[in-house]
Design a protein around this nucleic acid. Structure first.
Lengths: 225, 225
DNA sequence: CGAATAGTGTCTGTTAGACATTATCGA
DNA sequence: TCGATAATGTCTAACAGACACTATTCG
């Protein structure tokens, strides 16, 4: 019937999540142009058909050019679309999400805790909510949260990250059993004393084979629904 | 920097999966126009910015107009994009997947078993693979496969559907425990004798509250990876 | 030594799967 | 009665969570 490719707006947006003071936070950026110029929003931009090899590549480029960040973990979240989400008209936004340790961000980065977001333009609030939901769900049965840690970390630190993401305490013994069985971490010889008045914790790092992958556990870390 | 909305092709494709002779099969359709005219492919089409309320609505419309089918379950799978997947140029395809019982399809529907697909145009083979993977994964811990059954079905039938989707046998006792605990089915008073020379099985149907939702189990049906 | 946190051993309740038993149909 | 499949009871092994105990640091 129709053949009109029709004019619609197609963009890529990135939800970059990190931990700030023990809570998930999202990277925002003041918009450089209309609509909603100067308002804080998710970093995003048009696909460049002359240089992007795909939407994922466009997301990498947008994040790099707008914030200077290159994230080791980037995954497609979903595509949001419709006639009303953008005042310019019918629009499509292919959304990716990324995870980074808090200290990997520039000091002047604009971060907002995900449960106390400012007013966001477009449907960006809904997009952030979906990203958070995805990360929480996926963290229940995978090693996803390691991307929120730095290169080297202790098991108590990692457990804290899981607890921050899941929003509930995690059983220490079960947690360590799972980590052991996933086999994705290797101990480093140096330890972490940090001067604390207690027994120092063993430092670990991701095994090379798990740098770009996730490790999946059959039953989940905690028996949540 | 750039401001070019750039010309790209934006379409919606639908992976409709069903069971045929105890195996997952995908609905294909001969393409009505170039490129790949007359080749079997996933049903798809352009978004109509003047009538579609979103990509999901476009998927519903495409499926209805091209095949007459209205599926009770339709979910976004992912968005595929890039410069080479469509000979017409840089393209974006927002892909949805649907599930239907085999007998709900018109008799002349073109079905192909997912593990013996014909040559498909574009990246449709990869898209089907992703859809199958999603359905299998999601079936491990949810009630998704009920959408592959008709209105009324017995527990042995439903178990058979799970086994067909997962590709492995399912423990009968555990299966029935899970179904019970999910609480999404209700027995119908009539039974199914079907004239077989054995004890008839109880017929069940989905409870109203679960018509549009999935029921999620914490640990999965079988302790797969 | 005492406080504090890391790391481990062990017990217990829950859950999944195997197996056996009973139930109910047609022939 | 027999064959076949539905439905259920029960035992066991695996696993998660709770708790307690040991280890190691600083002050």
């Amino acid at each position: 019937m129709h053949e009109t490719p029709a004019s619609l707006i197609c963009t890529v947006d990135v939800v970059l999540l990190t931990l700030q003071e023990g809570a998930l936070a999202v990277l925002l950026q003041r918009r450089e142009r209309e609509p909603f110029k100067a308002a804080p929003a998710l970093p995003g931009g048009y696909i460049h058909v002359d240089e992007d090899a795909g939407a994922a590549a466009a997301a990498v480029r947008v994040l790099r050019d707008k914030t200077g960040i290159v994230s080791p973990y980037l995954e497609q979240l979903a595509t949001f679309s419709g006639p009303v989400r953008d005042p310019r008209g019918w629009s499509v936004s292919i959304v990716y999400y990324a995870l980074l340790p808090g200290n990997a961000l520039p000091a002047d980065a604009l971060l907002a805790p995900v449960d106390r977001l400012p007013q966001l333009p477009f449907d960006h609030a809904a997009i952030v909510a979906r990203a958070v939901d995805r990360v929480r769900t996926k963290s229940q049965y995978s090693s996803l949260p390691v991307y929120l840690c730095g290169e080297r970390f202790t098991l108590p630190q990692l457990q804290g990250v899981y607890e921050a993401v899941l929003g509930e305490p995690v059983n220490k013994v079960s947690f360590r059993r799972k980590v052991e069985e996933l086999g994705m971490l290797e101990p480093i010889e140096g330890e972490l004393s940090s001067g604390a008045a207690n027994r120092p914790a063993q430092l670990y790092r991701l095994r090379k084979a798990f740098r770009q992958t996730l490790s999946i556990t059959g039953r989940g870390l905690n028996g949540r629904s």
